[in-house]
Structure formats: C-alpha cells, structure tokens
Design a protein around this nucleic acid. Structure first.
Lengths: 212, 212
DNA sequence: GATGAATGGATAGCGGTGCTCTCCGCTATC
DNA sequence: GATAGCGGAGAGCACCGCTATCCATTCATC
C-alpha cells in the first residue's frame, strides 16, 4: 500500500504521515522506485499506535519517539523494557520539589518495606509523585500524603486486573505494547471512572433537590 | 503587598502575574493610586492555585478560568458546583468515537444499575471514558472494557478515601477547592502509584537478574 | 504514448499557547 | 531629586504539531 491508502485507512492526513516519517515516528516504507514506497499493515498498526499515544496519553512527539524506541529495542529483559517505557510515559511536572513532599514519598516507600528511596528524581515515576505532593503542599494541602495508603490499597486491585489483562497476550511485542496502551488508556479510564464515583457519592451524600 | 512581593512569595515572574491579571485568572488588586495596587494573601493563594492547576493538572489557561469561575460562583448547590468543576477539569481527547466503545460505556452504566446513558457526549466525563475506549479499540484492544468493573472496585476504596479527605474541610469554599485540588493531584498520584505497583508486580512475576 | 493524479522528499509557513519584553507616565523610597 | 519599582497595554517570541507548496518522478488510465 502507498501513502494515500495508509492515510485513508488511518484517517491521518498524508502531510501528517510525511511529518511523522520525518520525525522518525514511523519507519520508512520499502522503496520500489526512487519516489515510490510500499507500506504494509505493520505501518498502519504503528501509525494507529502513535495517534493513540498522542490522543489518549497526551504524549508529545518526543515522548512518543522515546516510547517507540523502548518498544522496539530487542535487548534487555522484559522488566527493563517496562521500566524504560514507564519512564517515557511518565513526565513529571516542572515544579520545584518541596523537601517535605520528598520526605512524604520516602516515608511511603519505607512503609511498604521498600529500601529507602535515596533520590526521588532518579525515576520519573517517583519524581512525578513528589512533584504532585509538592503542588498539593503549595496550596496548603500538606495532609494529602495520608491518601497514599488507601490509594495503594485500591490500586492493588486495579494493578491485579492490569496484570491479568496483560497476561492474555502471547508474544513479547504484544505484551510490551499492551503495557503501553493499557497504562495510558488505563490512566484516562481511571480518571473518568473516579469522577463518576465522586459524582455518585456527591449525589448520595450531599444530595441535590431535583428540579423538575 | 505589591506585585513584586507577590512575585517573590509565589516564585512567579512579575510579567507572568501581569499576564494572568489580563487573562482574568487573578482578580485585580485594590488601587491606592492610579498606578499602585495592593494585593493580599487571597491573591497569593489564588495565584498558587492557578499554578497548581496548570502544573499538576496540566490545565490550559482557558480551563483554569473555567474552574475558577465554577469555584467562585455563589449560586447553585454544592453538588452542581462539583459537576461544573468536573466538566472543566475533564477535557476529553479529540477522537472520533467508536460506536462500540459508546456501547461499552452504556453497558457499564447498565451494570451499575444507572439509568442508561442516552448521550455519552453530554458530559465530558463520559465522553472522556468513551474516547479512551475508542482509542483502545483503534489499536486492537477491544477487550479493555473488561477492566471497567475491577477498576470501579478499586476506585470505590479510593473514592471513599477522597470523600473522607474532603470531609475534613469546613467551609463551602474550602470544600470546593479541596475537590479541585484533590481530584487533580489525586489523578497524578494515582498514575504514579499505579506505575509503582506495576513495577513491583513486574519485579515479582517476571523477575530480573540482578546485574551486580 | 500522452495525460493527469499521486508519490517521495524537502522546505517554509501557520495557528495556537504561554509567556516575555518593551515602553509609557507615574509613584513610593531613600 | 535620584532610583527603583509600579500598573497598564501591546508587540513579540519560542515551541509545538501540523499544513501548504514545490519539485522531479512514477503510476494509472485512456
């Protein structure tokens, strides 16, 4: 298939596909002539993945490139790959870290029996956690840290479901892609369902007089 | 206090504060002379809130303005205010909705015994949910919907903690602000802790040979 | 084999966003 | 009275994700 068909099948404009090719988000097609290239279903699949990462995950072009690099690398254990992917899809906010928030994170790790986290900025994930708690503190919510434990409790159920979902996939490539998609789509789904749960509680507890 | 001191206390450049004033994110100070205005702690508090919304919530200027409008309005029940705030902090991805994903959402509502949701696009929250599932489907993950129920189960624990947290606050204004901050900071914290849980499972289940 | 649309490749430009810079006349402070 | 800072307003800037244009070449159709 050539670029026009790829565009039709994916709904992505040709000019945008060319841009992605230039940016290295999409591998070049096989040249059959100096100005004719051939794309296959793998390209279509990759293109849809790129759009999904940007749309649902809100990833930047640079972050997508990083994720794809981690997905594509043939070396390293699955565990290492997950780590690399996690780093790429977890960009912390550019906020000055509150030392107290850093302590909150370290105390949380200690409570979970983990070796104490020397440097929260070492990983994007812990950095993200610390920066979120810093922001909370900056607006006077220094007790937000107390939610970490109940959050973890709920997330254990969720993470178990995540793992079972991932386990359905057979090949190494499918597993790593399911991790990426599952994590990002999951983030958004969790956001939405949490809001629904809040609305339900609000309806029950606070109540509201029906208008009609 | 004047703008310089406000800048020092908040860490936000004077030019940026002026910009926020122009954009209506910050109420004007009290003019003591034609070109001298006075700001108080309420301004500082608001400024920090604005930055927190943008930094941790990733909200745009427009979204922040919407949230503040909902926070500030004096009319409507608390329940209605929560609804307005939720809409403002839940911008769905600009993705074409897959009808099957819409059905997934409706089936989910039906399972929870809710009245069937006629139009998922009516609320940003349901729209967000449907667009996330649409993206998942676009990359071949049509079974992601099966995670909705376990997610809800975990989120019930989390939402309960959220409600208890909110309940600490006394005044109407503090409650609504705690909802905004708690929801947005909570989103990010959930993201981070979920990734930590994933990493832990990955370590245990998949394992990894220590290098040193 | 002529013709028109589409292609690969490269470059320039565009629209939105979140600031940042500059200038103005004025004012608080030393 | 000098100097720094002020409120206010507009222009400009950097980045990002495209989008538009151009070119020589190639493919599909007649």
């Amino acid at each position: 298939m050539r670029v026009g068909e790829l565009s039709k099948k994916s709904g992505v404009p040709v000019a945008t596909i060319k841009y992605y090719l230039r940016e290295g988000l999409l591998p070049a097609g096989v040249l059959t002539s100096p100005n004719q290239a051939h794309y296959d279903d793998e390209h279509l699949r990759r293109l849809r993945l790129v759009r999904a990462l940007m749309d649902v995950g809100g990833l930047s072009i640079a972050a997508v490139r990083e994720v794809l690099a981690a997905v594509d690398t043939r070396e390293g254990s699955l565990h290492k790959k997950l780590g690399a992917v996690q780093e790429a899809i977890s960009q912390p906010a550019a906020v000055e870290l509150d030392p107290l928030a850093v302590e909150d994170v370290q105390a949380f790790f200690a409570r979970q029996g983990e070796a104490e986290c020397v440097d929260v900025t070492e990983s994007n994930v812990t950095h993200m956690l610390a920066s979120a708690l810093s922001s909370a503190r900056s607006v006077g919510h220094d007790h937000f840290r107390e939610l970490l434990d109940p959050y973890l409790e709920g997330l254990k159920i969720i993470a178990r479901a995540d793992v079972e979902y991932i386990a359905r996939f057979g090949s190494r490539d499918d597993i790593i892609e399911a991790m990426v998609v599952g994590t990002l789509v999951g983030d958004t789904v969790l956001k939405a369902v949490r809001r629904l749960a809040h609305a339900q509680v609000s309806r029950e507890v606070i109540g509201d007089v029906p208008e009609s």
